[in-house]
Simulated assay, not measured.
Amino acid sequence: MSAAPEDEVEQQQYAWPIPPPGGWTADDLDRIPGLPAHTELIDGSLVFVSPQRKFHTRTMWLLENAFLAHMPDDLDVDREMTIKVDKWNRPEPDLLVVHAKADTGPDQTWYEPKDVLLAVEVVSPDSEARDRDVKPRKYAAAGVQYFWRVEQSDGLPVVYTYELDPATRSYGPTGVHREVLEVDYPFPVSIDLTAINRRRRGPAQAD
């Protein structure tokens, strides 16, 4: 038997899911085999996330640790969990502050919008349009009360904070935070943004 042509082997190795008529639905996201980690669904189309930069990872680490240190017991924080906004959309914020009672166990893959108080997006070069425009519009339309967008400036995070106007279902800006982020909602928290590159290390070991 002759070997398959190289281009055919490559096509088989990198075959992409073929969408059904009308596009994928939110429930399909849990059923499609072989999806890369952190795949999102936007308007019925799959969105694959590129490998993240150190700034992105360390910003998430900084914010998540601050949230865990300050949030009340009836709230919790998760990273990179999708929100089932509607039939055609399951965006994945970088961080979510949710009602603790919304935890359904270790196999949970998404939250309902009513369970999410805050969605946080850390902007990357490949996600600028989604993080600045598409995803905040989706979160606001779904009723997520608070949204933060984090941009990089001279290696440090700058946090743009927003609150939902329930009459217009759109976000209004509430602040731009450099060096220190201090807010009262969705819970009181103060974060030293310049600490992004400070790492806790154990005591030096003697030679």
Rank of each mutant, 00 (worst) to 15 (best):
E112N: 05
L29Y: 01
K135G: 09
V144Y: 03
V98H: 02
D78E: 08
V134S: 08
D154W: 13
H99E: 15
L75R: 04
I18W: 06
L96D: 14
G34A: 02
V144K: 10
V134P: 02
R149F: 01
N89A: 03
Y160F: 15
E64R: 09
P20S: 08
N89W: 00
A129F: 06
E112M: 11
H70S: 15
D86E: 10
N89T: 06
V85Y: 04
L118E: 06
V49T: 13
E80M: 06
F147C: 13
A142W: 00
V144C: 13
D43Q: 14
A102K: 06
E80S: 10
H70T: 11
E151D: 15
V158H: 12
L29R: 04
S124H: 03
V97L: 05
R58Q: 14
A100N: 04
A142S: 10
N65P: 01
N65T: 07
P36H: 06
T104F: 07
E92P: 07
D27I: 01
G22T: 00
V123E: 05
A37L: 12
T82R: 10
W24C: 11
E64L: 06
T104L: 15
L156T: 04
D43V: 07
A100T: 08
E40W: 03
Y139P: 11
S45N: 13
G22R: 00
T57G: 14
P17L: 00
A15D: 11
D115F: 07
W148C: 15
F48S: 06
Q145K: 15
E151M: 06
D76G: 11
G23M: 04
P136W: 03
G155K: 00
L95I: 08
P17V: 00
R31H: 09
V150I: 13
L118F: 04
L156F: 07
A102S: 15
A141H: 00
V77W: 01
Q52N: 03
W148K: 14
G155M: 02
L117W: 10
W24V: 06
R53Y: 07
D43S: 14
D43C: 08
V158W: 07
A26H: 02
A15H: 11
K84V: 09
P125W: 01
T39F: 00
A15F: 09
E151A: 11
G143N: 00
P157F: 10
K135P: 03
I32W: 02
A129V: 09
K87G: 14
